[in-house]
């Protein structure tokens, strides 16, 4: 079963990391991701730019309204996501814990994936 691991954290705090700290966290995360990759269970991984770069399209009006900023003003923001293959929730949680040990702070939301198309974007 595929799971999305949605990464939430206070982007102000993440934005206050020193460059060394940022590099150290990314290096630790890379080790975990490479392990998942070698096991053939790692899907797309995305890190999102800060919410200041976000634009929201509200579709409940006609015409839809374009609003600067993220969909919701929350204390912690959606900063990125992983798609991983796991045998079940326990397995997905274990994968999330492993990522969390490399990058503590904030929260991961683990969501089973209903429909998945890898798409055609070349990276």
């Amino acid at each position: 079963m595929l799971y999305a691991i949605l990464c939430y954290h206070d982007e102000d705090t993440v934005g206050s990391w020193s460059r060394e700290h940022e590099d150290a966290v990314m290096a630790k995360l890379a080790v975990v991701q490479e392990k998942f990759d070698a096991q053939g269970r790692l899907g797309p991984v995305a890190r999102l730019l800060p919410t200041t770069a976000a634009t929201t399209l509200r579709k409940d009006g006609d015409p839809p309204l374009v609003i600067d900023g993220p969909f919701a003003e929350t204390k912690e923001q959606l900063l990125g996501f992983y798609i991983i293959e796991a045998t079940g929730l326990d397995d997905a949680l274990e994968a999330a814990r492993e990522l969390g040990r490399a990058n503590p702070g904030g929260s991961y939301e683990i969501r089973p994936v209903g429909l998945f198309r890898p798409g055609s974007v070349a990276t």
């Binding site: 206070d10 102000d12 705090t13 993440v14 934005g15 206050s16 990391w17 020193s18 700290h21 150290a24 966290v25 990058n103 503590p104 702070g105």
Partner: peptide
Amino acid sequence: MTDLAWIDAALTSAR
């Protein structure tokens, strides 16, 4: 991440 690095970042961003 050490506790102190986390606290440092939190104090800076809250300031």
